[in-house]
């Protein structure tokens, strides 16, 4: 028989040079730029406050730039105290980590709902040409429509019909997320190679077997790609929903409160938490993707 090459000759992805040092360099540059930018951004407001005779406990606009109550860009000390006051203790109802968890939970629940809905819709799209022709143009068009503009209205509507608490936000998140998921899944269910479909035909595979053994696994990479897009959209949806309903927790509620109180330091801190939440959500989905699609070559 043929002499098989040993498995050690398997191709491996060539290692690319690490991005760590250039990334650190850029971070350092941002840090160096931060100080003059902060002074410049705040000094105007400081000068105005001084001119109006307010007692800031400092003499020049430049010196006061780090001491404003509501700075445009907070000084390092203000950042530090803002962070501690909003993060400690982490699970208090008023702390940012707790509220980020609430918003993250709503978003994940919404994404789960959206995936189920998206899968059903994608299956219909792939199975029925009439259904595809009747609805696909509107599904695509809905991507260009500011669906999130419906969120405030939907929140009011759901409230009227007694849907309250966690659920309306998750529903709104799902509502925003399920279009990209449905379209991505439909693309994925159609992605098998014609030869692979022929192969299943030579085995007399049932439609259910073709679906389960070929179409669904082939669509997984597409599902995860669209899930990542959907995650950010769903997060925006749940935050907007929190702002537009009477909410007792969530990053959206914190944003609304501090926006009214013009507490800019808090807004900055919440922004960083919100950004981190978005990044963590996408990273979570990326992790799940690697776990589920282990068969793919490393990128």
């Amino acid at each position: 028989m043929t002499t098989a090459p040993t498995p050690t000759t398997l191709p491996r992805a060539a290692r690319r040079p690490s991005n760590l040092f250039p990334m650190l360099g850029v971070a350092l540059a941002a840090l160096v730029l931060y100080w003059p930018l902060m002074l410049w951004a705040n000094s105007g407001q400081a000068a105005r406050s001084l001119a109006s005779g307010a007692d800031l406990g400092c003499k020049t606009a430049l010196a006061c730039a780090t001491q404003l109550r509501n700075p445009v860009i907070p000084a390092p000390g203000q950042f530090a105290s803002g962070f501690t006051s909003l993060s400690v203790p982490p699970l208090a109802p008023t702390s940012a980590p707790y509220n980020a968890l609430v918003t993250g939970g709503e978003t994940l629940l919404g994404l789960a709902l959206a995936s189920v809905l998206g899968l059903v819709l994608a299956t219909l799209l792939v199975r029925s040409r009439s259904f595809e022709r009747a609805t696909l143009p509107w599904l695509v068009a809905s991507q260009t429509v500011p669906i999130v503009a419906l969120a405030p209205m939907l929140a009011v509507l759901l409230g009227q019909y007694g849907v309250q608490g966690f659920l309306p936000k998750a529903i709104i998140a799902a509502y925003i997320a399920f279009f990209p998921i449905a379209i991505g899944m439909a693309q994925g269910l159609r992605s098998p190679d014609p030869l692979q479909l022929d192969l299943m035909r030579t085995y007399r595979a049932s439609p259910a077997q073709v679906f389960g053994l070929l179409q669904v696994p082939a669509s997984l990479p597409y599902l995860f790609t669209s899930l990542k897009v959907a995650a950010t959209a769903a997060l925006v949806g749940s935050i907007v929903a929190e702002i537009s309903t009477i909410s007792f927790s969530g990053l959206g509620k914190m944003l609304a409160e501090n926006s009214r109180a013009s507490d800019t330091v808090a807004l900055w801190v919440i922004m960083i938490y919100g950004a981190a939440l978005g990044i963590v959500l996408v990273a979570l989905i990326g992790g799940l993707e690697r776990l589920v699609t282990r068969w793919r070559p490393p990128a």
Partner: peptide, 21 residues
């Protein structure tokens, strides 16, 4: 013949399922 699974077909391309080892 196909429904009786009377033949095995080897295509011009391998047509393997990428997610199966």
């Amino acid at each position: 013949a196909r429904e009786n699974r009377a033949y095995g077909y080897v295509f011009q391309a391998p047509a393997l399922m990428e997610w199966r080892n």
